[in-house]
Design a protein around this nucleic acid. Structure first.
Lengths: 240, 240
DNA sequence: GGCCCGCAAAGTGTCAACACTTGTGCAGAC
DNA sequence: GTCTGCACAAGTGTTGACACTTTGCGGGCC
């Protein structure tokens, strides 16, 4: 409606001071910006699975031409976050049961690798404070039922391990399945006793890393993910 | 002109005869088509690493509007096959040494997983003919120096294993690094004695699969890739 | 003779209008 | 009353044109 009457409002005329490179051009959002925003909304469930993403609507909201929304949607499709059917538009993919288990198999392989590489590339002392964290404070968080903070801290550890692994290709692949793990972790961790079991496994893995035992760290990380998957299978009726 | 159907997205509606614009009866290539063609050229080194891809040029060659080339280039960029700089255009990425080793670590994790899943999901007899293939004919091919046929057959086995693993997410990830492995395999296999060593390891893995020993199949596949990586490290001056 | 400035061409980035497809509501017939 | 066909509207797909950036080249100045 109002979209066509929008006066072009000197968006770029004679203001070359801000070439586009940056992330947060306040003039208008770039395609990567849009991608990140939409990705965040999908990951946080702000946009429910199955919801339709209308191009014109989004274009109006962000104040950008529809073409740019289109490019962002194409990127989301490549990442598997939305599905587009010709002339039907884009809808947020809902992860089905089989895909969930497939992702756990992937996590077992990828995060196991990450644990091994991180152990190999860092001096053992590097993990000292993480061992301490999981031994004490994290246990308290679980006991208090503050799972949000626990998950937040765990996510930070996860990022530190990925960074320490220093393998960009691996990081990229873990990033691809990030949104989905994000959702799954929150669903599994509320299962009875699961949080404490997970903490114990993380602690064991970290202690192996602190010993510099890369092979054992990989094995323990994989074992942890396998039991998580088993838990998910057992309780799938309640979780999904 | 190789495969034109994109495996990931089924775009075709197949009914209407494309009444676009009137005159020409030529159906123009879709974005997935263009993606596949360009991907093939990059994988086969028909377009050298570092070469520039000019949009107007490609648009003229394929007889499609430039916008469509743009979308295809965006997809290639997401896959890491080209790098685009603003106003500078797209150039084919050249894989550097560190990335090569990173990819081998990934292959170890991913193809190991594929071997395990394939073993678990298929009856042991399913691999009988592959064992026979690697025991006899493949040995002859190497002895005759017909490495192209050998690689071709190996690629087919690789695809069968991935298909048997029945994990679409895993398949997608292996697909992402496909082009790069493609190039690397051809460089490693010409090293002295390497082809025969590789064959022996593939045979051992296949025999574990025929025994239904999934864990051992995974271990052997991983071991094979680790030695391949070691060979690459040893001879990197000659290969890269 | 070398350096710098400015111009021009090539190529990329952006956009708004146009064409087509699909879903929906309404009217008419059985 | 219900079903069927048609027409309209909403939304997506496509296209050519236009604006901006980079770069190579030539002329003028030091």
């Amino acid at each position: 409606m109002a979209a066509k009457k929008a006066p072009t409002t000197a968006r770029r005329k004679a203001v070359p001071a801000r070439p586009r490179g940056g992330a947060k051009g306040r003039a208008s959002a770039s395609v990567p910006d849009l991608f990140q925003v939409l990705r965040g909304r999908i990951a946080s469930q702000a946009i429910a699975p199955g919801a339709k993403l209308r191009e014109t609507e989004l274009a109006a909201e962000f104040g950008v031409p529809r073409t740019r929304i289109r490019d962002a949607l194409a990127a989301l499709e490549q990442r598997g976050l939305v599905v587009r059917e010709p002339n039907r538009g884009a809808v947020v993919t809902r992860l089905d049961l089989s895909q969930v288990f497939h992702i756990y198999d992937l996590r077992e392989a990828l995060e196991g690798l990450a644990a091994r590489l991180a152990t190999e590339r860092m001096p053992p002392e590097h993990w000292q404070k993480d061992v301490a964290l999981f031994k004490g404070p994290m246990k308290d968080l679980i006991a208090q039922g503050d799972l949000d903070t626990y998950i937040e801290q765990y996510e930070l550890l996860r990022l530190r391990i990925i960074e320490a692994a220093a393998n960009p290709v691996l990081a990229e692949m873990l990033d691809i399945i990030y949104e989905k793990t994000q959702v799954l972790i929150r669903r599994i961790i509320i299962l009875p006793g699961r949080a404490e079991i997970g903490r114990g496994q993380h602690l064991a893995t970290l202690e192996a890393m602190r010993r510099g035992d890369a092979a054992e760290a990989e094995r323990l990380r994989r074992e942890g993910l396998r039991t998580a998957k088993a838990t998910l299978e057992k309780y799938q009726r309640y979780v999904l």
